[in-house]
Computed example of a mutant assay.
Amino acid sequence: MSTPPQRFEILLVPEHVEGRDAATLAQFAIRSAVVETTGRQGSSGYPRYVGDGIEADIDPATRTVEALLVDGAELDYGLSARVVDATDR
Rank of each mutant, 00 (worst) to 15 (best):
residue 3 T to C: 15
residue 3 T to Q: 15
residue 4 P to W: 00
residue 4 P to R: 00
residue 4 P to K: 01
residue 5 P to H: 07
residue 6 Q to D: 08
residue 8 F to R: 06
residue 8 F to M: 07
residue 9 E to W: 04
residue 9 E to N: 10
residue 10 I to P: 15
residue 11 L to T: 08
residue 11 L to A: 10
residue 13 V to H: 08
residue 13 V to Y: 09
residue 16 H to E: 15
residue 17 V to G: 15
residue 18 E to R: 12
residue 18 E to K: 13
residue 19 G to V: 03
residue 21 D to P: 07
residue 22 A to S: 11
residue 23 A to C: 05
residue 24 T to V: 14
residue 25 L to P: 06
residue 27 Q to V: 08
residue 27 Q to P: 08
residue 28 F to E: 09
residue 28 F to G: 10
residue 30 I to K: 04
residue 31 R to S: 11
residue 33 A to T: 03
residue 35 V to L: 03
residue 36 E to N: 07
residue 37 T to R: 05
residue 37 T to V: 11
residue 37 T to Q: 07
residue 39 G to A: 06
residue 42 G to C: 11
residue 45 G to P: 06
residue 45 G to L: 01
residue 47 P to L: 03
residue 47 P to V: 00
residue 48 R to Q: 14
residue 48 R to T: 07
residue 49 Y to D: 02
residue 50 V to P: 04
residue 52 D to H: 04
residue 54 I to V: 13
residue 59 D to H: 05
residue 60 P to Y: 01
residue 62 T to E: 12
residue 62 T to G: 08
residue 62 T to N: 09
residue 63 R to E: 09
residue 63 R to H: 06
residue 64 T to E: 10
residue 66 E to P: 06
residue 68 L to W: 04
residue 70 V to Q: 01
residue 71 D to T: 05
residue 71 D to V: 06
residue 71 D to L: 14
residue 72 G to D: 00
residue 73 A to M: 08
residue 73 A to Q: 11
residue 73 A to S: 11
residue 75 L to A: 01
residue 76 D to K: 06
residue 77 Y to E: 14
residue 77 Y to G: 15
residue 77 Y to C: 10
residue 77 Y to L: 11
residue 78 G to D: 00
residue 78 G to A: 02
residue 78 G to Y: 00
residue 78 G to W: 00
residue 80 S to E: 09
residue 80 S to Q: 11
residue 82 R to A: 03
residue 83 V to Q: 02
residue 83 V to S: 03
residue 86 A to V: 00
residue 86 A to L: 01
residue 89 R to P: 13
residue 89 R to Y: 06
